[in-house]
Every structure is written in structure tokens, then in C-alpha cells.
Amino acid sequence: MKLRINGKDHDVDADPRTPLLWVLRDHLGLVGTKFGCGMAQCGACTVHLDGVPTRSCVLPAMLAEGKAVTTIEGISDGDTLHPVQQAWVEGSVPQCGYCQSGQIMTTVALLKKKPQPTDEDIDVALSGNLCRCGTYQRIRKAVHRAAEIAQSGPEGTP
């Protein structure tokens, strides 16, 4: 399979039906994307497929061929963190951290569509990303902060 992930082309020798999550983690070493429930119910495995948040645990890798896959490893600009990542660090959002890459990927897509989201927008976008630590209030605050950071400088465009 030929997959384009974070702007780079990869030749992957895997069963085409393998969930994209396991191709990312086991074949390519991109372990920032997490396995949670394995059935698209928790959001921990969220990546972008052509910019749309997608649950990689139920996506056969062959269906990602010809599309642009973006993982948590691909959203920063070198050493410059993405505004969402900056806001997450600034607000000490993660507790255990396991779900946070999925939360961040969904937030990145949200801010592309709604640069100044309301609380209701955040609820709609992120209600499918579960956090067993209950960091939801910090997540919501950080989403608003990320929007501010993104608006404040040219390098901070999500």
C-alpha cells in the first residue's frame, strides 16, 4: 500500500484491511495516535483524512490510499507547536494524557472550520472524544485559548 502520512509517502507492507491505527503504530512507529476502544466510540484514535477527523481504529488502511493522512505528529511546524498544542501545554490540560491526541486532532479540525468557536460548538465537536480523567473543563478552556493564539500571530494559523 502507498500511504501519504504527514506529507510523506510511505510504502507499507501490510494486509490492506488492517485498521489504519495499527499501520500507523506498528508499521510506521507513529504511536501518538492511541488505541482506546477499537470501535470508534471513544475518539482516542482520531486522525485526519483529507482534513476530516476520522477514527483510525475502524478505517481499513486501504481506504486511506490516495488521501492525505495527518496524525498528531504532523500538526506542528518543526519545533513550533501548533496553537492547539501550545494551549494544551499552557493550560496543563492532560491528566493521564491518553485521550489527548484525539482531543487535539478534533480541536484542530474544529478551529479550521470555526476559528472562534462557542461553547456549544466545542460541545458538538468534542462530545465524541471521551476523557476518563474528566478534563473536559480544561479542554474547553484550552480550545478557546487556542483560538486566541491562532488569531494572535501569522505563525499561529491552525
Partner: peptide, 13 residues
């Protein structure tokens, strides 16, 4: 309106 779609979770298979 917030960047998601049904296909976020409902795949083609």
C-alpha cells in the same frame, strides 16, 4: 459546521 462528518465514525464498510 464544526469540521466533523458522519464518516468520522461511519466508514464505508
Amino acid at each position: 459546521d464544526v469540521g466533523m462528518s458522519c464518516a468520522t465514525c461511519h466508514q464505508v464498510v
